[in-house]
Design a protein around this nucleic acid. Sequence first.
DNA 1: AAATCACTCAACCGCTATAAG
DNA 2: ACTTATAGCGGTTGAGTGATT
Length: 275
Amino acid sequence: MGRSPCCEKTHTNKGAWTKEEDQRLINYIRLHGEGCWRSLPTSAGLLRCGKSCRLRWINYLRPDLKRGNFSEDEDELIIKLHSVLGNKWSLIAARLPGRTDNEIKNYWNTHIKRKLISRGLDPQTHRSFNSSSSAAIPTANAIATTSLDFRKNASTVASKMLPSQNQLNRMYKFKTESIEEGNCSSSTTEETQQQQQQHYYQKEQNKPVLDLELSIGLPVTRTDQKTESNWHGSRITKPSALVAPRMCLCWQLGFQNKAGEFCSNCRSSTTAFYS
DNA sequence: AAATCACTCAACCGCTATAAG
DNA sequence: ACTTATAGCGGTTGAGTGATT
């Protein structure tokens, strides 16, 4: 058997909290501190489940909550953090003292989304709607502004979490080199061109941008042209093609040898290879 | 003044990772 | 080792409220 349940689900209140319930919760946490939400409702004399108590405290009753309208600075910071972190509201809230993840999430959905749309930006990707595809290329100005403001605010507010200038440079360098060497085989030619164009703009501006689009691909090599017979005997020249090496899907842990070859598991006859 | 619409936000729901039994 | 509950998170809902017709 596992744990015993935290509360009698059938005897719990739902819906809006009353002032009395709030006061009970506040009093209890003042005396005993946060945590152990499982036993809190019974101990505090509340007919609520622990989950509900936790939410009420975190989102509404905590004394360090700021409440009130969001400032313009907070708006911009949320937008920038969202462009880096996506819908990770708890991580964003951690960078905004006095604000809760729920509050920020609500504010995003009711205000900021609209704000970005009115700026012609897609709230999810933070890229311009004017671009033709989902892998739209932001304007050079937008890149410059975003990256400048981003680092300016990030260095003061989110310095503990966000990458340093050196890290940004390293990431930027790695990504650009990878694309220039044709190492990314998962993108289509068009996407690759767009990525290259985007990085070109960034290079031109000399203001690297944190790109969190990750792709996994195998290094590809180009085959030689081949001349062979087709089905009715005519000689045809097959153009060169991009080919990825066979991929090892070994799921066991092992060590490569000094030459960097596959682990012993992979060399065994039972290993599956896919190309 | 009443009806309808639009908006806000607290609270709930469902999921995943982890802890406890 | 397994089962079950908890903690925490993001998504969604719906009651309350103000604006508009």
